[in-house]
């Protein structure tokens, strides 16, 4: 329906990118429930996605279960795994939990690699094409609304209290263990939905699609967008779904670098307003450097465009954490604040 409408002025490749934005939005907002809202640290989100994707694909492939039911079953299975992973959270904090989630996801991947009924290391081919842009769009919107409501309820506040101060939360009657497990279960459920959408869209699944890299990719989305804010997760998912595509050719790279430069200017403006002269000198030098690289490094950039993606990702991770831990959405809010105050001043 909407897909047909879009196909009038967009290529099928562009529509595919849009669909992936949807799928990754579901993944990012659900991971944000664990990492951003509850303050736990999961780097195994791809594992839940894999469970959902494989279970749903198994059901539609072998038993011709309708897509919606299969997706629901996949999501529930993923939620069950979320419960399993949630249990160690009774005991683990911070970094130990991170390693445990990574371990769980790796175990799932290794098991799938050895599971012949879903193709094992050859991958699961021949999955019916049961999801398209329309399905993805509708399910993404529903997921966003549902999780948004969740975070704005007493449940969401309880999760945030755990992030802020676990002991104080306990003393205020918040059963922190229950809510931590709940966060994992809810997040895993939605990751499972995303997995089903992914499998039935691509018509192929491979265990190595759900390795640590995928989990990190999802993590990067919420870091870039701003953790603990679903709009931030959405923004992160959009940016990081488009970024690798735009890094495929020189023109795209130029645009990307220009945008990154402008964001950098905005961040440094936010941080260093006190000394305008130094700030101006800084952006001038950085701008000249960027221009120099673009003009004289054209050959190199074109040759290594593919390999530079991960390097750009990792530099982004480090710089965001050091200079802009509240993410793009935090930056937007900070920049908007003086503007808002000025507007309010005019009214008064």
């Amino acid at each position: 329906m909407i897909e047909q409408l879009l196909s009038n002025f967009m290529s099928s490749y562009q529509i595919q990118i849009l669909s992936f934005i949807g799928i990754f939005t579901i993944l990012a907002i659900s991971l944000d429930i664990i990492n951003g809202y509850t303050g736990q640290f999961s780097i195994g989100h791809a594992g839940f996605m894999a469970v959902g994707g494989y279970v749903a694909a198994y059901l539609t492939f072998y038993h011709q279960v309708p897509f919606i039911l299969a997706t629901l079953a996949g999501a529930l299975s993923a939620a069950f795994f979320g419960l399993l992973i949630g249990i160690p959270t009774l005991r683990l904090r911070g970094d130990y939990l991170a390693i445990a989630t990574l371990g769980f996801a790796e175990i799932i991947r290794v098991v799938l690699l050895n599971l012949d009924v879903v193709g094992g290391a050859r991958g699961f081919a021949g999955i019916s094409n049961l999801s398209n842009f329309d399905t993805v769009l509708i399910i993404t919107i529903i997921s966003f609304i549902v999780l948004y409501n969740f975070t704005r309820s007493a449940y969401g506040r309880a999760l945030q209290s755990i992030r802020e101060d676990e002991i104080a939360a306990e003393c205020m009657g918040v059963p922190t263990t229950y809510f931590k497990v709940l966060a994992f279960v809810v997040a895993a459920f939605f990751a499972g939905i995303a997995g089903s959408l992914y499998g039935h869209y691509l018509m192929f699944l491979h265990p190595n699609d759900f390795g640590l890299l995928r989990s990190i990719e999802i993590l990067l989305m919420i870091v870039l967008g701003g953790m603990g804010n679903l709009w931030g997760a959405l923004l992160g998912a959009i940016v990081l779904s488009i970024l690798p595509e735009s890094l495929r050719n020189y023109q795209g790279i130029v645009y990307t670098i220009a945008v990154v430069y402008l964001v950098g200017v905005a961040i440094s403006y936010q941080k260093g307003k006190q000394n305008i002269a130094r700030w101006l000198a800084g952006i001038l030098i950085a701008g000249l450097a960027v221009g120099f690289i673009l003009i004289y490094g054209k050959e190199l950039i074109i040759r290594y465009a593919g390999q530079m993606r991960m390097i750009i990702y990792s530099i982004l991770l480090i710089l965001m954490m050091i200079f802009q831990p509240s993410g793009l959405i935090g930056l937007a809010r900070d920049l908007a604040k003086p503007l808002k105050e000025r507007l309010r001043g005019v009214k008064a």
């Binding site: 999780l147 007493a154 506040r157 945030q160 802020e164 101060d165 104080a168 009657g173």
Partner: peptide
């Protein structure tokens, strides 16, 4: 040990969460 990043009102509401009278589905679907 306040929940520093949350508003004063939210701090108070968290202490009231045990007495909420709706379940998770009511919250998710309003």
């Amino acid at each position: 040990r306040l929940f520093k990043e949350l508003t004063v009102l939210e701090n108070i509401l968290i202490a009231r969460q045990a007495y909420k009278k709706y379940n998770i589905f009511t919250a998710m679907f309003r």
